[in-house]
Design a protein around this nucleic acid. Structure first.
Lengths: 240, 240
DNA sequence: CAAAAACTGTGACCGCGGTCACCAACTCAC
DNA sequence: GTGAGTTGGTGACCGCGGTCACAGTTTTTG
């Protein structure tokens, strides 16, 4: 199967670097990074690491997106967040040298750089800037987690949670949205099952609520492309 | 009102330092810390920082415990975690230079060191060890948050969540528990209202479930001292 | 391109737990 | 002390959303 994106072999030439949370490092650090990293390409659905495993190293997600999830002993599972390009994964585990907190699964064909635990620790000690980036990434993880807690704990109803989620996604809309004014198009790669795991509800309820939104003209759904047609209405559902 | 603990003025002589997540730093760093910190003592219920405020600096909690909470616009609020002595508070905000994520309120008379934003940033750049400790603290925050998400999202029932919480508390039991075998005594400083906010339910339900636990002989409650009398039963309620 | 697998839509049922309402017990402040 | 303000206990009610069951649809795969 052919991948539909350019593989970025050389971090120094990477065009996404500056928008990335982690990779915007000084030249010397990038050169070092280039030496210790191992670039791989993964199909959709690939597992980068498994919750509970002891950490072998970290992953820098170059392109594609990945979901971080945690599973209860009964098999019920829960999405913690969706990581975007430029994020570092497995950091919590690597820093504390404790098992991975989450299972990471690619949602799209993705490229990621792997750095082995020992190399990473040395890299961290060698360049102070790396420590700062690590702190930034950890901070971002915390914020996402707190958002998730707020969503789970402070929202009253599923419609509210779902509206909140859609609005969050709407912050990164599709550019290619054939601009009708006041409409926002977005590409949703999660299944309803996954959305349910994200907002802590059941698949059936997501389906029902979504149908409700469609009937009321809040959104239009065409395959993986959702179009927000009444943003105001969604915002009114959200209290927080 | 007199405080019932010794005030630790000198970080170099602090006897709790080694058990602390943050303060176990090299001598030079401690000397610097000593210069830039401002020690204060707070009564129970004092607010160290407020959610949404821009960060003025960080707090190192020396003695006492504090709850971190977040509030929805409707006034419903939710406890994110309870911080123990030695933890750094306000770090997420300080690192990202973004508003405080949570409101911090002391649960007991407490002592804390304040470091102003600018001093902290300089301190961080000056001593690499500090960066590491910061990463450790942030990692800890993430883990707590993930536990909270798991508790909120993966547990089925309130009894399960409450059992889980009690068992988590039981990991730090009261030493002075007049050892009956198989009994664990613990001091609970949260009100039922706060417990409810911690596990995402209502006060009434906490009360009811607790009464259930007492009737079934899982725990005994005497004021703020709870005694686990049937740990096994509590563990059986927990599925994760 | 057909068969399998995954995903989505919907009806029926019902129980957990939120909410309201009130009283009891405890804790402070003065 | 005494009264105000928390905190805790409990009954009644009922609606949201979980679960089960199954049909329809889309995607994957060999």
């Amino acid at each position: 199967m052919a991948y539909h994106f350019q593989i970025v072999e050389d971090c120094l030439k990477c065009e996404f670097r500056e928008q990335s949370l982690f990779c915007d490092l000084p030249r010397e650090a990038l050169i070092r990074l280039q030496e210790i990293k191992a670039t791989s390409v993964y199909p959709k659905g690939a597992l980068l690491c498994l919750e509970g495993q002891s950490p072998r190293g970290i992953f820098i997600l170059c392109t594609g997106r990945a979901k971080l999830s945690t599973t209860s002993s009964e098999g019920k599972s829960m999405i913690l967040r969706v990581a975007e390009p430029g994020e570092v994964l497995g950091l919590t585990a690597a820093v504390a040298n404790s098992p991975y907190e989450a299972t990471v699964e690619t949602l799209e064909p993705s490229q990621a750089n792997f750095i082995a635990q020992a190399d990473f620790v040395r890299f961290l000690q060698e360049f102070p800037d790396v420590g700062l980036k690590v702190a930034k990434q950890l901070t971002h993880n915390c914020k996402c987690a707190y958002d998730e807690i707020r969503s789970l704990g402070l929202s009253n109803s599923v419609p509210e949670k779902l509206a909140k989620l859609i609005l969050r996604w709407a912050e990164h809309p599709l550019e290619l949205s054939l601009k009708k004014p006041n409409e926002t198009a977005l590409r949703v790669t999660l299944t309803q099952e996954e959305i349910a795991q994200f907002i802590g509800t059941s698949r059936e309820t997501v389906s029902r609520v979504l149908t409700g939104f469609r009937k009321k003209g809040y959104i239009r759904v065409k395959g993986a492309t959702w179009t927000i047609t009444n943003r105001r209405a969604l915002e009114n559902l959200v209290t927080t």
